[in-house]
């Protein structure tokens, strides 16, 4: 088939256009949040003293970090799905959540006596954290990877990895309502390790799922 024939054929197929990207992303985010909520409430659920915890700054700050991760990674993912958008520029906002967390770690180290550092750092939920953040996040990860197929990521592995960050941010937001280890020392250690599992899974899956 010669190229001018192909062009005529493509022009004849002009009418049907898929759902707009922003609609797909909104629906996907809603579906992902519903999946995460379902898994969370059917498995570990919120901690018993959540009403009291909600008055403490360390507990609340966990949500600032996890929601910052979710929002910035979601924005980056939407950029990575569009050809011609500079990946480095799309991913620049991702520094926000780690920066917030580092500042909180610094303040925590100033606020607590050295004798307490180790117990707050290691906490008592490390294994639960590293199990349930990936578990709550795996469904949302699949949803974001699937939505990526509607886009056109020119770096499929990278876009898959960032899908893992989005799913991780969402999942960690739910998990944070369960966990009683509120110190930024704990959050800065075990949350990233747990999210990294989703990032690696997303990068590997992205190579296959997000091809086009």
């Amino acid at each position: 088939m010669e190229t001018d024939r192909l062009i005529r054929t493509l022009a004849a197929d002009g009418a049907p256009r898929g759902m707009s990207m922003s609609r797909v992303w909104s629906l996907t985010a809603l579906a992902a949040a519903a999946i995460a909520a379902a898994v969370f409430f059917m498995s570990i659920g919120p901690r018993g003293d959540i009403a009291d915890a909600a008055h403490t700054i360390r507990f609340l700050f966990k949500f600032v970090v996890t929601l910052a991760l979710f929002a910035t990674a979601f924005a980056a993912l939407r950029g990575l799905a569009i050809p011609g958008v500079n990946p480095a520029r799309a991913m620049a906002p991702l520094v926000l959540a780690p920066a917030l967390l580092l500042i909180a770690v610094g303040l925590e180290l100033l606020a607590i006596p050295p004798s307490q550092i180790e117990s707050r750092w290691i906490g008592s939920n490390a294994l639960i954290c590293m199990t349930f953040i990936p578990m709550i996040g795996i469904g949302p990860l699949a949803a974001f990877l699937f939505a990526l197929r509607n886009g056109a990521p020119t770096r499929p592995s990278l876009a898959g990895a960032v899908s893992g960050l989005v799913a991780g941010g969402l999942s960690a937001t739910f998990y944070a309502a369960h966990c009683t280890d509120d110190s930024p020392l704990f959050v800065a250690t075990f949350y990233p390790l747990a999210v990294a599992i989703l990032v690696v899974a997303g990068a590997v899956a992205g190579r296959f799922v997000a091809r086009w």
């Binding site: 192909l6 197929d13 256009r17 707009s20 799905a81 569009i82 509607n150 886009g151 056109a152 086009w212």
Partner: peptide, 9 residues
């Protein structure tokens, strides 16, 4: 073909 199928991006 890719331009055609991905023009919504």
């Amino acid at each position: 073909l890719a331009i055609h199928l991905k023009r919504h991006t």
